[in-house]
Each structure stands twice: as structure tokens, then as C-alpha cells.
């Protein structure tokens, strides 16, 4: 890339992902997109909370949620957010190997989370008869938590593709930007999960 600014110049230190106009634009664009994602999830939250008590005689949140399960899910995601952050940390040191290792660990934790979640859904459906069509409450639950899960799954695919690109091309302005952005996405999913943990699981234990 001819337009990659080098860090040897007299300019203050600038991370590689911000070094090109294109990189800066895309990072800002992605932040704006995350703003939109906040609104998207807020609608699902609002819908879930409105229909939370509409169980139509089916299972209630108190009957369904299991502390051990959702705590393990929460810890998996929280730690994956940390390891993903370490990937960004290695990115700042231009250490391709380090990035790849931390991203792979992140991926594994993400896969673990998805495995747990799928198990949880299957258990609800088979043991409690709790499916998306059972009641408004369950529609809200499955679609809110499922949308987050779909985001995580997409993140896993995306991160995999970026690991491949990084392995092929090393740390350049373009791959640096990609790693940084997928990191933003991953942390953001953790933020969403914190609210699911709070508004769905913890609240579901109280109300």
C-alpha cells in the first residue's frame, strides 16, 4: 500500500489501523454502525420486556433460567472479550503471530459459548416444551438471545476469515484495520450480552 504512513516520521505515534484515510473512515463508519446496532438490540429488549409476563400458561422465566448455565456463558464471553482485547494489544506491537494466537483463543471461547447456548435452547425445547411458538414471552426470549447468538456466530466466521488474511499477508494497514474492527464487533457483542445477562437472566430470576 503506497499510502501507508510510516511511523518513523516525526508525527506523534499513530496505530497502523488509523494510518490511512481508508482505515480511519472505516473505523468511524463501524462505530456509527455499532450505534445502529445498539438501537437494533434495544428494540428486541423492549419487545422482550413488554411480553415478559405474557407466558400464556407456558413456562415462565423463573422456571426456565438456570444460574450455573448462564453464568458459564457469561464468563466465556467476558474472557473472550479480554483475549480479543489482547489481540488488539498485540496488533499495536505489529506482532502477527501474537494476534493470531489470541484471536484463535477468542474463537474457541466463542465456540464454547455458542455450544452452551445451543444446548440451552435444545434443553428448553425438549424438556420444557419451550419453543418460539409456545408463547409471546418465549418468542421474545428466543429472538433476543438468538439474535445475539447469530451475531456471535457471524463474528466467528468473520474472525476466521481475518485470521486467514492475517496469516497470508502479515500486519499491514489493511489487515490491521480489519483486526481492529472485528475486535470492536466482538467487544460490542460482549456489551450486548451484559445487558442480556442483566435484563433477561438476572431480571428473570427476580420478576
Amino acid at each position: 500500500m503506497s499510502s501507508v504512513a510510516s511511523n518513523q516520521s516525526n508525527k506523534p505515534y499513530e496505530p497502523l489501523e488509523y494510518s490511512t484515510e481508508d482505515g480511519r473512515l472505516r473505523i468511524l463508519g463501524f462505530w456509527i454502525f455499532l450505534g445502529a446496532e445498539i438501537v437494533l438490540f434495544s428494540c428486541l429488549f423492549a419487545t422482550y420486556l413488554v411480553v415478559h409476563s405474557h407466558t400464556a400458561g407456558g413456562p415462565t422465566s423463573k422456571e426456565l433460567y438456570d444460574v450455573k448455565e448462564f453464568m458459564i456463558e457469561t464468563f466465556l464471553l467476558l474472557i473472550s472479550s479480554f483475549t480479543c482485547g489482547l489481540g488488539t494489544h498485540e496488533l499495536r506491537r505489529h506482532n502477527a503471530k501474537g494476534i493470531i494466537i489470541w484471536l484463535i483463543i477468542t474463537l474457541l471461547l466463542g465456540l464454547g459459548f455458542i455450544y452452551m447456548e445451543v444446548n440451552e435452547f435444545v434443553k428448553y425445547a425438549t424438556e420444557e416444551g419451550a419453543t418460539v411458538g409456545r408463547s409471546a414471552f418465549l418468542s421474545g426470549f428466543f429472538v433476543l438471545v438468538g439474535t445475539h447468538g447469530a451475531h456471535v456466530s457471524l463474528g466467528i466466521l468473520w474472525m476466521t476469515s481475518i485470521i486467514i488474511q492475517l496469516a497470508k499477508r502479515g500486519v499491514t494497514a489493511v489487515t490491521a484495520r480489519k483486526v481492529f474492527i472485528v475486535g470492536l464487533y466482538w467487544h460490542f457483542l460482549d456489551v450486548v450480552w451484559i445487558f442480556i445477562f442483566t435484563a433477561v437472566y438476572l431480571t428473570g430470576m427476580v420478576l
Binding site: 472479550s81 479480554f82 488488539t88 467487544h187 460482549d190 451484559i194
Partner: peptide
């Protein structure tokens, strides 16, 4: 998350 991990 926003400040420590995402460098907002």
C-alpha cells in the same frame, strides 16, 4: 468495555 477494550 467501551473505554478499556474498545478504545472509544
Amino acid at each position: 468495555q467501551l473505554l478499556f477494550f474498545m478504545h472509544l
